[in-house]
């Protein structure tokens, strides 16, 4: 009887009506998620007149790019892209190197006080930036580093590398000991062990870290807002967020400005989607 009941339920659950209700629900959810981005994309290519007469939901009557071009030129957007790319890739490279060095000492070297040091490094990830911002701003001014890309690169290299130090140290704690032992017997120095054995074997994790550091740094807002004050040093998110309302932007130029902020991230997402989901999962479990 019980069995029969289950069978019945299963057949009922598997009926095509349920299937299409489920599909419809997912499509609605996806539509809600995409609604803001689609609105921006749709209206960035309309003239203000087109928007005024046909509203936000219609397709553009003509492919209007003046808003996009106007905003691009007014903020010299290529400069902001370059700033963001320079800061993010520097942080990604230096952050990966720093994480590797830290984890080499902690995970492979298992130096004294490893657990304590690891907690200290984790601080970098857990302390709110609000508790660092004023002294960083003050020191940067005192050292004449305020409003330079260099100070942002240094600060984020340290902050981001905390995560990698933690992740790589736990990866290295399972590193095959025999490989290291054999290298030592062959007379390899520490730097050779690092560059010829540990680094090549951890390349997959290092590339995940690189992508993460790049995107995290690209998306950072709070500290760059405070440390980069001049327009020539600002990153994409800072420029777009602080310029809202500064110019007398019309409705479609405003949409174009938001689209310019969204596009680079969508491109990263398409390029690195696999790496990203792999990395998020890795970071959450251990």
């Amino acid at each position: 009887m019980e069995r029969d009941n289950n069978m019945l339920k299963k057949r009922h659950f598997a009926s095509p009506v349920h299937k299409y209700i489920a599909l419809a629900a997912m499509i609605i959810l996806v539509a809600i998620t995409l609604y803001p981005v689609v609105m921006i994309a749709l209206n960035a290519f309309k003239s203000p007149q087109d928007y005024a007469s046909h509203g936000p939901m219609s397709f553009p009557t003509s492919f209007y790019t003046q808003g996009l071009i106007d905003f691009w030129n007014r903020v010299t957007f290529e400069k902001k892209l370059l700033n963001s790319a320079l800061i993010s890739s520097s942080v990604a490279i230096f952050g990966v190197i720093l994480s590797l060095l830290n984890a080499f000492a902690l995970g492979i070297g298992k130096i004294k006080g490893k657990a304590f040091l690891l907690v200290i490094f984790l601080l970098g990830n857990f302390l709110p930036q609000e508790a660092l911002v004023y002294p960083l701003y003050y020191f940067a001014k005192a050292l004449h580093l305020y409003d330079t890309k260099l100070v942002v690169i240094i600060v984020f290299t340290v902050i981001q590398s905390a995560f990698g130090t933690y992740l790589l140290t736990s990866v290295f704690s399972e590193f095959p000991k025999e490989l290291i032992e054999a290298a030592i017997i062959d007379g390899a120095s520490k730097s050779q062990i690092l560059s010829r054995i540990v680094m090549p074997l951890s390349m997959p994790t290092l590339s995940v870290l690189f992508v993460f550091y790049f995107i995290w740094t690209w998306n950072e807002f709070f500290l760059p807002l405070i440390l980069l004050i001049s327009s020539s040093n600002q990153t994409v998110p800072i420029a777009i967020a602080t310029l809202q309302g500064q110019f007398n932007m019309d409705v479609t130029t405003s949409a174009a400005s938001a689209l310019l902020g969204v596009l680079p991230c969508l491109i990263f997402f398409l390029l690195f989607q696999r790496t990203l989901t792999r990395g998020i999962t890795a970071g959450s479990i251990k």
Binding site: L127, L132, Y134
Partner: peptide, 23 residues
Amino acid sequence: YAVYLMPGLIGLIAVIILPFLVT
């Protein structure tokens, strides 16, 4: 191995620990 920790530790002190203590 400890020498490999130096850059990270110096960075950590300069960017995180010292600013935090000042705050």
